[in-house]
Structures are given as C-alpha cells and as structure tokens.
Simulated assay, not measured.
Amino acid sequence: MHGLLLIDKAAGMTSHDVVRQVRRIYKTRKVGHGGTLDPLATGVLPVAIGDGTKVLQFLLAENKSYRATFQLGMTTDTFDSEGEILLQRPVPDFTSAELEQICVGFRGEIKQLPPMFSALKKDGVPLYKLAREGKSVPRELRQVTISRLEIIEFGSESVTIEVDCSKGTYIRTLVNDIGELFGCGAHLTALRRLKSGEFSIDECLTLKALQQLEQPASAVHSLDEALRNYPAAQLNPAAATALEFGIPPALEQVLTEKELFEGTLTRLQIDNKLAAVARYMPLRSKEKRGDFELIRVFVGH
C-alpha cells in the first residue's frame, strides 16, 4: 500500500497519534505525516503510507490556510489555551477599523520569533522539552509570508481570522503578536487548518470515518495525485527506460500540457503514473544529460 491519506484531525490528538492509528488500520509501520498540527488544532493533515513517505518533502514545503480564534486580554506560556496563564490585562474598546489597522501590519513578509513551546530543536533537544523545564533559549527570527489575513468575526474579547501563509508560520505567535499590539495580550483558543497545499478540508476524512470503511484502500490517493499541483510531463519509451538508470530526459522526450519554465518542479510520468520528481533545468552545468535535474526517482533498474 503506497500513497497519501487526507485526514481531518480531531482536537486533543497529536499528529503522531494519527500516524499510530493509520499504522494499525493499514498494518504497516511505514507511515508519516506532512505537517505537524498541535493537539488543540483540527483540520487537514496529509498522512503518507509506504512509498508515499517519499513525497512528504514536497508536501511539507507547501503553503497552508487556517481559521483561528483568539481571546484578547490573557497571555499564556504556550500562546494558546492549553498553557499556563502568565498575565491578564483589560481589553480596550476597539472598532473593526482599528482591528483591521492592526492586521495590516501582519500581511506580507514578516519576521516571527518561534515560540519556546515548539518542535524546533536546540542542540538536538526539542524546544518544548526545555520549556517544560522552565528554560528559555535564544531563537532566531524567521521570515514568513502572510498572503491573506482576513477578519471573519469579532466580539468584545474574541476574534476569528483566516490566514493564508507560508510554511513554518506559527499561528500561535501571530496571535500573541497581535495581542501585544492591542496592548492587552491574546492567546489562541481554536485553530483549524483549512488547506495544506492543494488539499482542502472538504477532501478529508476523520479517523472515525476511515475506520468505518469496508475498503480503507479506497481512501488512499496515488503518489501522482499527491503531487497534483506540480505540472506533469509524460515520458516516451526511450526516456522511461533511461530514467530507470538514473538518466534524466530531454525536453523533446516528454509530453507536457503546459510550458515549463526554468526551475519548475515537475512530475515525470510513465503511463500516467509518477516515476520521478524533477526540476526543469536545461541550462545547468554539472549534468549535461537531459534537461531535468532529478530530485526523487520512484523507478529503478
């Protein structure tokens, strides 16, 4: 069994909890997920099975979309409702225009300081383990991109937003930073991932629904479908044979539906099945054979 599942993760579970359950359902150890969701969070969690784990490196690089609700007036050590309260402050009266003005500053390319309660590592130790010991270590600011930050609804102390963002964006940090600009602090109370790359919440199954399927294999997307957002290039027979020996194809050996530009990640297909992921690089200097730089090959001699 090889491919990709689209799971709607429930609240209260870790992403690895989902992986463990999928291992039981499909009776295989080779399972991994494509982007950690905190236990508080719900929504889109791509889970790879078998050789599907070989495409995770591409899924992890994709943009994400979220719906987040946060409460003003209270900060916690984890930046969400699962942490310990650090400070409570009165919430000032505000208008929708004032809220919008604050949000403007978080659109586009911004710098974020990763939270201590995160899976990032310092000298091989996850930061959250250090945080639980009461330790704080220096972290470097990271540049992320918020391509959309839309106010969905708000009340006197609660705000719901939707965010489209680049990989590595911490919504908890975004909420904390918004709260600090308000002058009263804030913490995340609900988070739902609506999209991961091209995969939307409408395509996902809950674990309960997956367990009830008579044929769980019917829920598994092929490796080619897992990378559907990359343009496809169908190899001719000569190129297909050469690829098995690690030789990349020339442009004239492939059939594409759209024009490829230098640097484009491409699905190389044999008989409409994923054979490799490659970058179109006709002008590269190291490898003179073919017009593509092979990144991950799924066929071999």
Rank of each mutant, 00 (worst) to 15 (best):
S156G: 04
V277S: 02
L141S: 13
R139Y: 04
G290V: 07
Q112W: 02
D93P: 07
G168Y: 02
F298C: 06
L72S: 02
Y280G: 11
S156H: 11
K273P: 06
L243W: 03
T206G: 09
H16W: 08
E262D: 11
L205C: 03
S65D: 07
T78C: 04
I161T: 03
L235I: 00
L99I: 09
M13T: 13
S158K: 09
V31T: 05
C204H: 00
T206D: 05
E109M: 10
P216K: 02
A232R: 14
M13L: 15
K135A: 13
N63T: 09
L260C: 10
Q211A: 13
V297K: 12
Y128M: 04
G105C: 10
L59R: 00
A97H: 08
Q234E: 15
G12S: 10
A275H: 07
I295T: 11
H16C: 06
K273R: 15
R20H: 13
L6V: 06
S118V: 01
L37V: 03
C184A: 09
A68T: 04
E252Q: 00
D8V: 04
V175E: 01
K258L: 07
Y170F: 14
G300F: 13
A278M: 11
L188K: 01
E214N: 15
G108C: 09
T169M: 11
L251Y: 00
L210R: 00
A239R: 00
R89V: 12
M74Y: 05
V44G: 01
L149W: 01
V297C: 11
E62P: 00
E140P: 05
R107I: 09
E162A: 14
V277R: 00
E150C: 09
G105F: 09
G35A: 05
N236W: 00
T173V: 12
K54S: 09
P90K: 10
L205Y: 02
G134N: 07
L60S: 03
A119I: 12
D93Q: 14
Q101M: 12
E133V: 05
R132G: 08
R132W: 03
M1D: 09
L72H: 02
L45C: 08
D80E: 05
D38M: 10
L130H: 12
E259T: 14
L274D: 02
Q21A: 12
D202Y: 12
D202R: 13
V44M: 01
C184G: 09
K286A: 10
F182H: 04
E133D: 09
C204G: 01
V297G: 07
F58T: 00
A97T: 12
D271R: 13
Q211S: 14
L283S: 13
M281A: 15
P138A: 07
D17I: 08
